[in-house]
Every structure is written in structure tokens, then in C-alpha cells.
Simulated assay, not measured.
Amino acid sequence: MKSTGTILLGLTLGVCITNGFARFAYGLILPAMRADLGWSYTQAGWINTANALGYIVGAMLTLAIVQRVPAARIFQWGMAITVAFLIATALTQNYALLSAWRLLTGIGGAMAFIAGGALAAALHPDSQSRNALAIAIYYGVGGGLGMVLSGAALPWLFDHYPPSVWPLSWALMGGTSLLFLPLCLWAAQQLHPPVKPAATTTGRLPLGRMAAQILGYFCFGLGYIVYVTFLVAWMKRGFDTAALIAAVWVVMGLGIMASPFVWRPLLARYASGLPLACVMATMTAGALLPLAMPSALGLMLSAALFGVSVFMAPSAVTSFCRLNLPPQRWGRSVSLFTVVFAVGQTIGPIAAGALGDLTGDIGQSLAAGGAILALGAVIALAQRPLSA
């Protein structure tokens, strides 16, 4: 096998594209698109809801074909779709087409993200510690890197040019993704994890005893996306300097990159809902800080707390499944949590946009998102180990 470091870099750049660019960077671009195209908050929220709908479709498609199609091929298809429609987003101002391109970007992003996780897990099959590190780098560093790169560049673009420059921001991310794409495709080609036949299981998942974790995770999907989508739009009310927006986004990205190493001991130790509750409590503090402390310091602390926790909720539920269920049920349980998260993530942007339009204050939407995260933390805290 070629250098595992280079292969991991290629996979990680895939997450940089699918999450950092294709999903999260919209929060940076939304204010310019809204100003140029005359959108309401609801219309702006729908664009991210369309992307989240695509994620549901892509996740279900991946889960349907993963038993028959190699993960490397799914990853390559997903990356090609994502990059193609990132670029396409720069080429139209038509609302229906923008919605369609965001939907398709979500489909490709889910395919690549899920399949890439399987590929990263195959890098070090004979070393559990190195395997865990590779997975942590894939999930954490990839998404964080995309936020650091977009956060370091796009606020300055919007500071120097009128809102109508927004297509260039998508073109810049699409062009950067094109540069990354060959390494992503090559990396996937080097890995050949076996295509396993679907496991036959007789018992059902103990959904009743998992209810607190499931509901808590739904609140995560519903609440986190509100902050990511509308934070910069809220900052336009008095904290809209390019330097501050860039700093907030970069700090959030750096927090994401550091998060796997911060939370790993807690995730491995507890089989209850405590890890998810702690992660969501940290996110709650980050989400509400801008409203409680409306200052540059409050925003920076908010970004740090939110960044260091947001990517760890999926890790918390994955760890919960592994510590509480037999291996033959891991796939089904993680798939269930994926769908629950995706549904929440789909509702969040358009509901928050509608609330912002109704109240005339997008800060009310940020407050609602933080309250939902707090509720999810309380619910998750009630989850007991399934063996208890």
C-alpha cells in the first residue's frame, strides 16, 4: 500500500469539500445572497434545508448500495457530484436551480462522507490505536480545515466587493475543490475494504430503552444547523467586520480540528447518554453566548465552544452504539441515528428562517436553536446504559 499518510490526506480533503465547503460555508455566503437576491430569511433557510434533504437522500442511497458497491466507488461518485454542483451553484441566480444544485450537493456529500468513513477505518486494520486516530483525523480535521480555509478568505471578499460578488465565492470553493479532487479520487482507489454481505439479525433494536439518546440526537440535528446557518447573518447587526467574521469562522474550524483529541477519553468511558449530554451542553453555551455577551470576546468564545463540540455528537452516538449493542447491530443503530439527525438538520434552517421573518429578529432564531440544544442535553442525560 502507498503511504497511509498521503491516503488519509486525500480522504480528509474530501471532508473539507463535503462539509467545510459544501455544507458549512453557506453560512458565510448567505448574507450576500440574501442582500443581492432579495430573499427573506425563510427563503435563505430553505437553501440549506434543500442541502439537508439531499443529505437524507444520499445517506439512504449509500446505506442501500453499500452492501453491493465498493466504498471507494461510492466515495468517488459522491466527490464528483459534490464538486460539480458546487461549481454549478456559481453559475445561476435562479432560485429553483440553486435549490436543486444544493440538493444534489447534499446527495453527493452524504455519499462521500459516509463511504469515506468506511475507507478511513480500513487504513490500519491491525492497529486499533492508529485506526482510531485515522478516523478522528478524517472526521475532525477535514471539516475544520474547510471552515478555516473558507473563513480565512470569504469574509474579505465580501468586505471589498458588493453582495453581487457571491457567485465568485462558490466558484473559488469549486475551483479549490477541483484542485483537491484528484488526490481524493486517488486515495479512495488505494483502499479496498471488503464488501460485506448484509448481516442477518433476528432481534430488534431496543428503541424504547434508546429513546432518550435518539430524541437528544434529533435535537442536536435541529439545533446545531441554526447556529451554523444564521450566525453570520446575525453578526451583520453590528459585528460585521471582515476581520471578526473571519476570526470567528477560523476559530470554529480550529475547534473542530482539535475536538476529537479533547473528547476521546469521555466518549470511551461512559456507556450512558452523559457524553452526548456534555457535548450538547457545551454547544448550548457556544450557541447562546453571542446573545448573552454581544461582543467580539463573546463571539470568539462562542466559536471556540461550538467548534470544539459540534462534530463530537456523531462520535458520542457511535460510541454509545458500540458500548451498548452487539457488533451485528452497530450498522443498523448508527444508520438510525444518521436518519434522525438528518431529519432534524432538514427542519432547522427553514424553521429558523421562518421564525426570523415572523419576529423580524434572526437573533430569536439563534436563541431557539440554543434552547433546543439545551433540551437535547437534558434529554440525553436521562439515557442509561442499555445493560442497566
Rank of each mutant, 00 (worst) to 15 (best):
R68N: 13
P182L: 13
A342E: 00
S177C: 04
T89M: 12
P162C: 14
A188G: 14
A80W: 03
V248C: 12
R329I: 00
I47S: 10
G109K: 01
A50D: 06
N19E: 10
Q67D: 14
F85S: 01
L149T: 11
Q67Y: 08
S315R: 04
W156A: 14
F306A: 08
Y224F: 12
K2T: 11
R204C: 08
A377N: 00
P162A: 15
I17Y: 04
L13F: 08
A112M: 07
G78L: 08
L323F: 01
L231F: 09
A292Q: 01
M111C: 07
Q383D: 05
G363A: 10
Y227N: 14
S40C: 11
L205F: 03
A243K: 11
F113W: 11
P260V: 10
A246G: 15
F158K: 01
M1R: 11
Y270N: 09
L291S: 06
P326H: 00
F306Q: 09
L11H: 06
L299N: 07
M79Q: 11
P206M: 10
G142R: 05
T284L: 10
A198Y: 02
A316T: 05
A112Q: 01
A303I: 12
G344K: 03
W263M: 08
L123A: 10
G369R: 05
D159L: 15
P167K: 04
L205P: 03
A377H: 02
G216E: 10
G331A: 04
L98H: 04
A100I: 11
I347N: 03
G174A: 04
T18H: 01
G117T: 09
G5V: 06
I379D: 03
L181P: 01
G174K: 04
G223T: 02
A377L: 10
F341H: 02
W263K: 02
A32I: 12
L381K: 11
M173H: 02
G143C: 14
W39Q: 13
L133H: 03
R73G: 05
L30P: 12
L231E: 04
N324V: 05
P327A: 09
F337A: 01
L336T: 04
V57C: 11
P182T: 08
M280K: 02
R34Y: 09
P326K: 00
S129Y: 09
G348F: 03
L274W: 06
P163R: 14
G255M: 13
A120T: 04
R102P: 04
L30I: 14
L123G: 05
I137M: 14
G140E: 05
R130N: 11
L373Q: 06
A352I: 06
F239G: 10
F320E: 07
G174C: 06
P290T: 05
A258R: 02
G146E: 09
L244M: 13
G108K: 00
G298D: 07
W263I: 07
